[in-house]
Amino acid sequence: MNRPVVVGVDGSPSSLVAAEHAARAAHLRSRPLLLVHGYLHPFGYGVPLNPYDLGVPAPSAEAQKMLERTAAELTDRWPDLTVDVRQVTGGPGATLIEESRRAELVVVGSRGLGGFTGLLLGSVGAQVAAHARCPVLVVRPDEQPIPVDAPVLVGVDGSESAALAVGYGADEAALRDVPLVLTHVGPPEQDRSVPEEIEEAQAAYRADAVRLLADASGRARAAHPDLVVREHPIRAAGAAQGLIEASGTASLLVVGTRGRAGFAGLLLGSVSQAAIQHAHCPVLVAHPLN
């Protein structure tokens, strides 16, 4: 199955930047690109509650022109790219989540036309990042150009979710021909003397971090023997803060859906949520392919 890279496009600057990232991702993967516009009924919903009264809304000619214009611009930049466009009756979030069942990757912008400018990530991006059935690339901040030579950064904490993120991160770094940086965020060092038992616990924690990074590095190198892999333990007040600060020198941050300390009932852990809201580069949320 030749799964496409899918991107939601509504004509907003954020979605057009997302389409550019999606085109590059499709090009690197030799996959087709699908531009999707989820459109709503004039009263604000998808299919009307009573279709006998109003009928299923027809695709918008204006939206179709926007999609075709975007597709033409992308194929001008990537001539080998196969681009399809589709309008789907339904909300953009639900539409992209449904498309994710058949996609290699779903790409969303930080805010669409319906987004509030004060929000760092719109509701559509948050929905898709939490519920998609394949990896999700959240493109933010949308005002910066696409970085091409900075490393791919992955947070490592020993969880199954982080292990999946390491695999995706290694694949992505190999595709982009950039280094992979594996980082583990530990608590800040104590500036004052501490009791012996605390010092022993800190030493055990440091040893655990070294082991986690070494294991992750070994798996990445086994999958991609020519990949440059760096281990980078850092100290910060929290895992989210550490990853967000480190993302300033990365082209991509890859996070799992939930870390080792995450609550099983949450679809997206607090660290992942903070990353997609505040990272200084695009964020790949490592959902497994279904």
Rank of each mutant, 00 (worst) to 15 (best):
V83C: 10
T75S: 08
D53E: 13
E104S: 15
V83D: 05
L54E: 15
F116Q: 02
R101E: 14
T75D: 01
G91E: 07
P92L: 02
L120N: 09
L81W: 11
V107G: 04
E98Y: 06
Q87D: 03
A63M: 07
V83Q: 10
Q64R: 12
L81S: 11
V88L: 00
L120A: 13
A63R: 10
Q87W: 08
V106G: 13
E98S: 13
Q64Y: 04
L81V: 04
L105D: 08
L105I: 09
V83M: 03
W78F: 15
M66R: 13
G115I: 05
W78Y: 15
F116N: 02
L54V: 12
G55P: 03
R101I: 02
G90Y: 10
R77G: 02
R86I: 06
G112R: 02
V85R: 00
D84W: 01
L96H: 07
G90T: 05
G115C: 03
R69D: 15
T82K: 12
S60Y: 00
D76H: 13
L54H: 14
T117I: 04
V108Q: 00
L74M: 10
L74W: 07
L74C: 04
R69P: 01
V107N: 06
G114C: 10
R69L: 05
V88E: 15
R69I: 02
G90N: 04
Q64W: 07
P79Y: 06
R101M: 10
S110F: 01
A94H: 14
G115W: 01
G114F: 00
P79V: 07
R102G: 07
G114E: 02
A58E: 15
G112I: 05
G109L: 05
A58V: 02
A63W: 08
S110A: 15
E73M: 11
E98L: 13
V106E: 12
V106P: 04
V85K: 04
G109H: 10
E68Q: 12
A71C: 06
M66S: 11
V106A: 12
L54K: 12
G118F: 11
S60C: 00
L119I: 00
S60M: 08
L67R: 00
P79N: 13
A103F: 11
D76R: 15
S100A: 03
V107I: 05
D84E: 14
G90V: 06
G112S: 06
R86E: 15
L54T: 10
A71M: 01
D53I: 11
A94Y: 09
R102M: 11
T117Q: 14
L74A: 11
A58K: 14
A72L: 07
